[in-house]
Design a protein around this nucleic acid. Structure first.
Lengths: 149, 149
DNA sequence: GCGTAGCGTTGCATTAAGCAACACAGCAGG
DNA sequence: CCTGCTGTGTTGCTTAATGCAACGCTACGC
């Protein structure tokens, strides 16, 4: 294994470990929302009007999973359906309680993240954030495969 | 929110999304081992002789969870107990089948990761890997808290 | 040798997830 | 306008992973 191969395997190891620990830390930090719920709420927060099926596709989750999570969130009064339901499906948006819960959870998660970032310079943080976003962008191959289907 | 705060919130968002998609992609890629199992097997692969409780601590998992996963892995003949069980607990090591399954799963995971890394230079990959490792290191605060308890 | 602490296991509950089947609503073509 | 098809959401059933609590056993320290 040359250097690049070593780097690649360490990237995937790190990602798995980070996510595992991150979820555990978040839970022990007492977030109002679970990681899954937070993801969904955040998604709606950033794209008001999305539908259940959009979330499912983007998160690679089954429609049924999203449906049930949303049912829970609506029961709690965090998410509601929009009135203007032109076209297929039902556009969603956050209720006031949802915005609030989202911001609260965000705070906890940020503090968890910040512990890891102690000792990082602003420039390093910015660079890391950019790398992560870049990494996160759908690769052309996979995107094509999905579009075709 | 200033720039650094924006970066921090985007870091956590990215991490959650990456891990969610990564797990989904890995599963659809048909890995012989689940993400959890792969983590455990990999941990044993790198540190032969570790005990169940060590894994639990490092992964922030309950001892019972690890116990059950290990029971499954041993039933499948991937992990076995070491003969030289001096001291507390039972040191673990990979069986031949375990080494094999580990490498197979690693291949799948690497190809998933590699799709994301298309277009990255070796230097960028190396930098990203180092950042992730750095991020992954236990922060002093949290480590202290844990040590004290 | 005895008590205590550490380690692993097991019973029980919960959460997140998938698959399959279904019901219902839009949209398209005739 | 009616009919059929397709997309959207829901529900039943199952499974995997996890936590907590309780238990039994084993090794250490005195």
């Amino acid at each position: 294994m040359n250097d690049v191969e070593l780097d690649r395997s360490s990237i995937l190891r790190s990602l798995v470990t980070i996510s595992r620990r991150g979820v555990a830390d978040a839970r022990s930090g007492g977030t109002p929302l679970s990681m899954t719920d937070q993801s969904i709420v955040g998604y709606i927060a950033e794209r008001p009007g999305v539908r259940s099926t959009d979330i499912a596709q983007d998160f690679r989750l089954n429609r049924s999973t999203v449906s049930r999570q949303l049912a829970g969130l609506m029961r709690l009064g965090l998410v509601r359906e929009r009135s203007d339901s032109g076209g297929r499906g039902r556009p969603l948006e956050l209720a006031e309680a949802g915005e609030h819960a989202y911001r609260e959870t965000l705070k906890v998660l940020q503090s968890v993240i910040d512990e890891h970032l102690a000792g990082w310079s602003d420039a390093e943080i910015a660079r890391f954030a950019r790398d992560l976003e870049r990494f996160n962008q759908e690769s052309p191959t996979r995107a094509t495969k999905k579009e075709r289907s």
